[in-house]
């Protein structure tokens, strides 16, 4: 408990935040890597997932892939890529891209696939092209599930980005690894608290976003369609 108080006093010291390589800089690094990786991964995985959901091909393969990805230990992937690509931002970013893809893919294809076929057939019968069907029927109806996938991917990446400091000195994870090495426990604990706060803040933002966007009446079933697609890492 003594250590917790010291960690809080570290957090309340302005210099901890503003100095070169301070908490503010690392917080922005962490957030920047997270947003960048999720955006990049979404740019590839979402269109692919929507196409798979629309054509209903390869759905079993994608479901298997998403399941298998859960079994791969993130630290193993990170260190293997670290050895292959060397110290630097390349290896963790590549590992994070790979980890973000399965929940994004799963959210996109499951969301589109769950759209009522009658709505799609109706759109087709009034003469909409396939592209129009995707854009103005399937995407709007699938949006909540797609956003759910983005939420899972973001949580996965923000958590794993902490671990990424093991192979490259980026983000808030640096406090944890340098604190462990130098036995600077207040800094170690303060860094841990910051990562937790950032993750909960991001998750809470998604929860608010999804709540404000869903005008349809809440149902208990809806909340369980994407059951926890990420590794807790």
């Amino acid at each position: 408990m003594e250590l917790l108080l010291q960690a809080f006093s570290w957090l309340l010291t302005p210099e901890s935040w503003t100095q070169q390589g301070g908490a503010l800089q690392r917080l922005f690094e962490h957030l920047g890597v997270t947003i960048g990786v999720v955006a990049l991964s979404a740019g590839i995985a979402l269109p692919l997932g929507v196409m798979i959901g629309h054509t209903r091909r390869w759905t079993t393969a994608v479901a298997l892939l998403a399941g298998a990805a859960r079994a791969i230990p993130t630290l193993g992937l990170l260190t293997l890529l670290g050895l292959a690509l060397g110290i630097g931002l390349g290896a963790p970013v590549l590992a994070l891209l790979v980890l973000a893809a399965p929940p994004l893919l799963a959210g996109a294809y499951a969301g589109v696939q769950a759209v009522d076929p009658e709505a799609v057939d109706g759109a087709r019968s009034v003469g909409m092209s396939e592209a129009e069907i995707i854009r103005s029927v399937e995407l709007p109806l699938a949006l909540p599930v797609i956003v759910g996938g983005i939420r899972s991917a973001t949580l996965q990446v923000v958590a794993t980005a902490t671990l990424a400091a093991y192979t490259s000195d980026t983000g808030l994870g640096r406090y944890i690894f340098s604190g462990l090495k130098s036995r600077d426990y207040p800094e170690l604990i303060a860094g841990s608290l910051l990562v937790i706060a950032l993750a909960l803040l991001l998750d809470g933002s998604f929860a608010l976003l999804m709540k404000s966007r869903s005008r349809a009446p809440r149902s208990d079933r809806q909340t369980t369609t994407i059951p926890l697609e990420r590794n807790p890492s």
Binding site: L155, T162, S192, L193, I196, A199
Partner: peptide, 9 residues
């Protein structure tokens, strides 16, 4: 939603 490494600490 809590990342695991901080929880280990």
């Amino acid at each position: 939603a809590i990342p695991s490494l901080p929880l280990f600490v």
